[in-house]
Design a protein around this nucleic acid. Sequence first.
DNA 1: CCAAATCTTGAGCAACTCACTAGACAACTC
DNA 2: GAGTTGTCTAGTGAGTTGCTCAAGATTTGG
Lengths: 154, 154
Amino acid sequence: MKFSKKSEYGLRALLELCETYGGRVLQRHEIAERQNIPVEFLEQILLALKRAGLLASRRGIRGGYSLIKSPEEITLGQVIRILDGPLAPISCVSKTAYQKCSDCPYAAKPSCPLQQAMGEVRDAIANILDHYTLSRFAHNKLMEGSSCAPSAIQ
Amino acid sequence: MKFSKKSEYGLRALLELCETYGGRVLQRHEIAERQNIPVEFLEQILLALKRAGLLASRRGIRGGYSLIKSPEEITLGQVIRILDGPLAPISCVSKTAYQKCSDCPYAAKPSCPLQQAMGEVRDAIANILDHYTLSRFAHNKLMEGSSCAPSAIQ
DNA sequence: CCAAATCTTGAGCAACTCACTAGACAACTC
DNA sequence: GAGTTGTCTAGTGAGTTGCTCAAGATTTGG
């Protein structure tokens, strides 16, 4: 039940691109250095985000990437779906990539316990991530004392 | 962002074991057949659940597995954590298996955007699964018309 | 127009994980 | 003590993840 590095890197890269939104372009190595991401891997991620219409790019010596959608319009859910595929914890509850369970004895019946439970989980995840805008996401970076404190951890 | 087959099979197996709770034991092949699960794989799952204290087993010709905790006391969250590991979507927000991000530039800072967002997701997932008891889970099987209808799907 | 810097594309790969299999062994019942 | 069950350890093939490499296309500066 993990998100991939791809999503993580993608979101961190967008954090940088948010900062220069409307201004200059960022080159892949700038993003890579600041965010500590292997540059060739980052490239694949940026290209995927470009194909999805979030970024624009320019080649050549003054080239680089830039956000072309407002950070208000982009949600974490969109980004993760682009890079990681559907959010649903099992595919029989996915709204974007539904697939019937092949081996589940309840697949044919009117109600499946697993579908019921996992559907709730899917909705909860989507509800958060599809309403979490990039601008709110980037804003967190600036706030102080909002606690990553490892005190609650064990 | 998927749950493994292991968790799925485990939950489906527990559905069967719920039915005979307090009564007779179930043999692995009975569970395997009814739930359409490869029997040797199921075995590993049942053993893990046994080691975690949810099941008891008996060897020999009258052997088999049985639930030893009440379905009211077992939650889906417990089961999934036993079989799949922590629920957290990235390990720096796990409460049961925290690990500091190695490469994240915000790891040292007072607040990390990713941690903030993923923490919310973690809490939402845990909130559902840690309050979803096995007895409520098993109950869904019996209800009619609660709709797995693929109408809302695309 | 040439050369350097950048993005673009596609292929490749080592390590890991997932889903499952196999086989030797231990314990229980009749 | 024979047969039937669970227990344990190891292995394995397919697929995914995370990353690298190399050959191109495009832009700009000189």
